[in-house]
Amino acid sequence: MESTILSINKLNKRYGKIHAVKDVSLEIHKGNVYGILGPNGSGKSTTLGIVLNVVNKTSGDYSWFGGALQTHEALKKVGAIIERPNFYPYMSAKENLELVCKIKGINYSKVDEKLEVVGLIDRKDSKFKTFSLGMKQRLAIASALLNDPEILILDEPTNGLDPQGIHQIRDIIRLIASQGTTILLASHLLDEVEKVCSHVLVLRYGEILYSGTVDGMVAHEAYFELQANDTKKLVDTIKSHPDIEKVSETEGKVIVHFKNEVDAAQLNQYLSERAVYLNHLVVKKLSLEEQFLALTNK
Rank of each mutant, 00 (worst) to 15 (best):
1 M>G: 14
2 E>M: 12
3 S>P: 08
3 S>W: 02
13 K>D: 13
14 R>N: 13
16 G>P: 06
17 K>D: 12
23 D>G: 15
25 S>K: 12
25 S>A: 09
30 K>P: 02
31 G>R: 03
32 N>K: 05
33 V>L: 15
37 L>T: 04
40 N>P: 11
42 S>N: 09
42 S>M: 03
43 G>F: 03
46 T>M: 03
47 T>P: 04
52 L>W: 01
56 N>G: 14
56 N>V: 11
58 T>D: 03
58 T>V: 03
62 Y>V: 11
63 S>L: 13
64 W>D: 00
64 W>T: 00
69 L>P: 01
69 L>T: 04
70 Q>L: 14
70 Q>F: 03
71 T>R: 04
74 A>Q: 01
76 K>R: 12
77 K>R: 14
81 I>Y: 02
81 I>V: 15
83 E>G: 04
88 Y>L: 14
90 Y>E: 05
91 M>C: 02
93 A>W: 05
93 A>I: 10
93 A>C: 12
93 A>V: 09
99 L>W: 06
100 V>F: 15
100 V>T: 12
101 C>R: 08
102 K>L: 08
103 I>D: 00
104 K>A: 04
105 G>E: 03
105 G>C: 12
106 I>R: 00
107 N>A: 15
116 E>P: 03
118 V>H: 06
119 G>M: 01
119 G>C: 01
123 R>V: 04
124 K>D: 06
125 D>Q: 06
126 S>G: 02
127 K>P: 01
130 T>A: 14
130 T>E: 15
133 L>D: 03
135 M>A: 03
135 M>V: 08
136 K>D: 04
139 L>H: 04
142 A>F: 09
142 A>Q: 04
143 S>F: 05
145 L>Y: 11
148 D>K: 14
151 I>R: 12
152 L>G: 00
152 L>T: 01
153 I>Q: 06
159 N>H: 09
160 G>L: 10
163 P>W: 10
164 Q>A: 14
167 H>D: 11
168 Q>G: 00
169 I>T: 13
172 I>D: 07
175 L>I: 03
175 L>Y: 08
175 L>S: 11
179 Q>H: 15
185 L>F: 01
187 S>M: 11
187 S>W: 10
188 H>D: 06
188 H>R: 08
193 V>T: 10
197 C>S: 15
200 V>S: 13
200 V>P: 08
205 Y>D: 12
205 Y>I: 02
209 L>G: 10
211 S>V: 07
213 T>M: 05
214 V>G: 15
216 G>W: 01
216 G>P: 05
218 V>N: 12
219 A>D: 14
220 H>Y: 07
223 Y>E: 01
223 Y>L: 10
223 Y>P: 00
225 E>M: 15
229 N>T: 14
229 N>K: 14
230 D>R: 09
230 D>Q: 13
234 L>Y: 09
240 S>G: 07
240 S>Y: 08
244 I>G: 11
247 V>I: 15
248 S>G: 08
248 S>Q: 09
249 E>T: 13
249 E>R: 08
250 T>P: 00
250 T>W: 02
254 V>T: 14
259 K>Q: 14
264 A>K: 15
268 N>R: 13
269 Q>L: 13
272 S>R: 05
274 R>P: 00
275 A>I: 02
275 A>M: 07
278 L>N: 06
278 L>V: 10
279 N>T: 10
280 H>T: 06
282 V>P: 00
288 L>C: 11
290 E>Q: 12
290 E>T: 01
292 F>M: 03
294 A>I: 04
295 L>Q: 05
296 T>I: 15
297 N>M: 09
297 N>A: 02
